[in-house]
């Protein structure tokens, strides 16, 4: 084993990217065990932007903008395995469909949303129109839909479509600034976003369309994930992972990594996959 990286401990962990590292913070119930935080992957020459976790094979997937690519590694000290290495310019957001065994990503230079199987095969462009700065992307394989945010300063928006790119629809257009982070909680069916322009966290029910503010006055969110009552986001000005209790609408904790530099994508790594069937196998 490498002395500078540590295997992911059992239980639920937060994974986040900081430059050429993916760090983990174990969670106990919803609380961060900050003293147990360590590096799980160290790629000193890379700039890792997005991270996603596959709960089936216990692999982390990430986007790298230095040699634009998508790679994966198992979290017990596995070596990086390239997944997509060609025809990328600025791959940023990434999401894994653990049921369909596919990976989805945004590219803010090619202005595309694409998918491929987890080995990089069967690559397909899903959306390539009306995108300016697509970044965050998440998938809900149980309902067969994806969500993404485009922080285009002229017309920021949050959109949804089926996971094959059909049925595209703008969900949010008003009152957005720079929607960098996006997360979906299947328990509450709430889609939440973190906005570095309006400095707010907001949530909506994508089916009913009801929208509400969760927290105002946040600084500079980049990535975002959620677990139960908590929202976890990375902040570019604070160089920190910040925890917000959705129900209490309050910041409850923060984690300051040892290295004082920007933090990027963040995701949850659960020991077990959430129950649920792929909408394809149901229909």
């Amino acid at each position: 084993p490498r002395p500078d990286v540590h295997p992911l401990p059992p239980g639920t962990n937060l994974l986040f990217a900081q430059s050429g590292r993916i760090e983990f913070v174990p969670l106990e119930s919803y609380d961060m065990k900050k003293t147990k935080a360590k590096t799980v992957l160290h790629l000193p020459e890379k700039v890792i932007i997005g991270v996603a976790y596959d709960c089936v094979e216990k692999m982390v997937y990430w986007t790298d903008i230095t040699s634009p690519s998508i790679s994966k590694a198992n979290l017990q000290g596995g070596e990086p395995v390239p997944v997509i290495t060609s025809d990328l310019e600025s791959p940023e957001g990434i999401a894994v469909d653990h049921l369909g065994r596919t990976v989805f990503w945004t590219d803010s230079m090619k202005d595309r949303i694409e998918m491929a199987t987890l080995d990089g095969a069967q690559r397909r462009v899903l959306v390539d129109t009306d995108l300016v700065n697509p970044r965050a992307i998440i998938v809900d394989p149980v309902r067969g839909v994806m969500y993404w945010a485009d922080w285009n300063r002229e017309a920021p928006k949050i959109e949804t479509a089926a996971m094959d790119g059909t049925n595209r629809k703008v969900l949010v257009q008003n009152g957005l600034g720079l929607p960098n982070g996006l997360t979906y909680d299947s328990q509450s069916s709430l889609l939440c976003w973190a906005d570095a322009g309006s400095h707010m966290i907001e949530c909506m029910d994508p089916v009913q369309g009801t929208r509400r503010k969760v927290k105002e006055g946040i600084q500079y969110p980049f990535g975002m994930t959620s677990y139960g009552k908590n929202i976890y986001y990375t902040d570019w000005l604070r160089d920190a992972v910040v925890v917000v209790d959705r129900h209490a609408a309050k910041e409850t904790d923060e984690f300051l990594p040892q290295k004082r530099t920007r933090v990027y994508g963040i995701t949850m790594a659960h020991t077990q996959c959430p129950s649920g069937q792929n909408y394809c196998s149901v229909n």
Binding site: D4, G20, T39, H42, P44, Q258, K259, T261
Partner: peptide
């Protein structure tokens, strides 16, 4: 591999 580079640097 350096594990704790000075602020602003990496690699």
């Amino acid at each position: 591999v350096c594990t704790n580079c000075p602020a602003g640097t990496t690699g």
